[in-house]
């Protein structure tokens, strides 16, 4: 799959102060850099997601650096405390410098 697609899932509504789960999935090859091209024998350069950041209304609430040995199409879930209604912006950065973004709305009651 050449085109990278991301999916995010959060609860429809959460009460203020409640801790909710954010689930995310992104389609990415996560080329390890260990493989060789079958015909030419040349090394295929590493191309993995190396950084993930989640911002909640402009404030970074979760971030992580990724290294080797993460599977292709990585799934990530984490917990965030509900403060205000607004948007959650998820961003994955890979070795080529490309940033894949996905935004989702959250309603806090």
């Amino acid at each position: 799959m050449a085109k990278v697609k991301a999916r995010v899932k959060v609860p429809k509504k959460v009460a203020k102060g409640e801790i909710f789960e954010v689930k995310s999935l992104i389609s990415h090859k996560m080329e390890s850099g260990q493989r060789k091209h079958k015909k030419t024998g040349e090394k295929i350069p590493r191309q993995i997601i190396n950084k993930f950041v989640c911002t909640y209304n402009g404030k970074a609430v979760f971030s992580s650096d990724w290294h080797g040995a993460v599977s292709a199409n990585p799934y990530l879930s984490f917990h965030v405390k509900a403060v205000d209604s607004g948007s959650l912006d998820l961003a994955w950065t890979d070795d080529s410098g490309a940033v894949y973004k996905k935004t989702t709305k959250i309603t806090v009651t």
């Binding site: 799959m1 697609k5 999916r7 899932k9 689930k23 999935l25 389609s27 199409n73 799934y75 879930s77």
Partner: peptide, 12 residues
């Protein structure tokens, strides 16, 4: 169904 990575292909 969300965690299942094959659902990306179902979407496609």
């Amino acid at each position: 169904n969300f965690e299942n990575p094959a659902m990306l292909w179902v979407d496609d």
